[in-house]
Design a protein around this nucleic acid. Sequence first.
DNA 1: GAAATAGTGTCTGTTAGACACTATCAG
DNA 2: CTGATAGTGTCTAACAGACACTATTTC
Lengths: 225, 225
Amino acid sequence: MPRPQALVTVDVVIFTLRDDALQVLLVQRGTAPFKDRWALPGGFIREGEPLERAALRELEEETGVRDVYLEQLCTFGDPDRDPRGRVITVAYYALIATDRQTLAAGTDAAAARWYPAGSPPPLAFDHREILEYAIERLRNKLEYTTVGFQLLPSKFTLTQLQRVYEAILGRALDKRNFRRKMELLDILTPLEEWVREGASRPAQLYRFSARRFEKLKDKGILFPF
Amino acid sequence: MPRPQALVTVDVVIFTLRDDALQVLLVQRGTAPFKDRWALPGGFIREGEPLERAALRELEEETGVRDVYLEQLCTFGDPDRDPRGRVITVAYYALIATDRQTLAAGTDAAAARWYPAGSPPPLAFDHREILEYAIERLRNKLEYTTVGFQLLPSKFTLTQLQRVYEAILGRALDKRNFRRKMELLDILTPLEEWVREGASRPAQLYRFSARRFEKLKDKGILFPF
DNA sequence: GAAATAGTGTCTGTTAGACACTATCAG
DNA sequence: CTGATAGTGTCTAACAGACACTATTTC
């Protein structure tokens, strides 16, 4: 029985929140195939390198950030997805907090840009498909996990948190209902700090309480959005 | 930059329901490594073969069934997960209806057996991990999709359907609440047929109505288990 | 005091979960 | 009539969703 070898890459869909919109990091390809096209950051795995570590490496090369939320998404392996031959890619997605989204000055990031996740430019390979799948997964995860907090700084206002949910879900949420649910979930710790956005009443800062969330999970309580 | 080639396999976690318990198909390995150990059905992808088609092929080789529910699970690629070298496996899981679970007479199935999914024998490679992950995924999917129906014949009784949910969720459900929810979801079509299990009152047969389910999905209504 | 955002409470309809008895069949 | 499984209804507590005004700040 034949055992064809394959090349293996990892691609990372790196999300962040900018201007109250879900955005994704894209890099412009410098070489063929798809030269000059935009693509998801990614590359070949190295000898002896675990898949997730390869994804973390690509992520750090492009953004300079570490310790971020990273999760495997799906594997794409159509025989003709890459004109160079049989290349199988394991896709990951990552969430970058708004206060950590500076791009690395490294060589790889020469042509890297944030794009609105919902309206990217034409993408190389099957990266459009990967991106759409990642958005859908993120939307689902938002409903029963706390991934949303990964997009915010450690201290945030309730309005900022609501913006995260609205940006990902793609619809407006009622302020009072949103706050009531957060109150009910009891996973936020209010801080004795306030911030002011322009000329208006200051907003109280909160911190995510992972410990309380663990208790909720044990009881099987899920998020209600 | 080095581009190490890798061997790519697919492994399939094939679930079915037997004796009111969730069971999984395992095959006994005939060759090293892990000779004589039980393992998930799977094997190397072929030249030009898409991943999902490879999984379907393995599935059919072991069970003889086609047209079953199959979904990609996760990809495992630790450098030392296979002593033969860098072997990356794309794991799938499949659901076989109780009335289609006859094993193929083919060569591969020489040593194939159903085992309770929760208490398998020692497994080769990292297959134990793959199996546990598949069970968790199935449990989650049960709550917001109709995968449960894939484990039943096209005609089934409400009690059979409840057994599916109980087997996968691992807990007893209240008969009246279960039936009320199914009634409410309105995705079952009652048939004018009854079956008798032993010496008792006959039970009405139902059929899953995929069309009504699609309507529910459009409205964003999910399953309430 | 005008503009801007933060923050707060009630009502209603739906649903989840707990709970026990009658109906129909074979032997 | 016994044993076995099918089938049925109510009450309560929790939650989702709709909805509008006051509070605090800058300029």
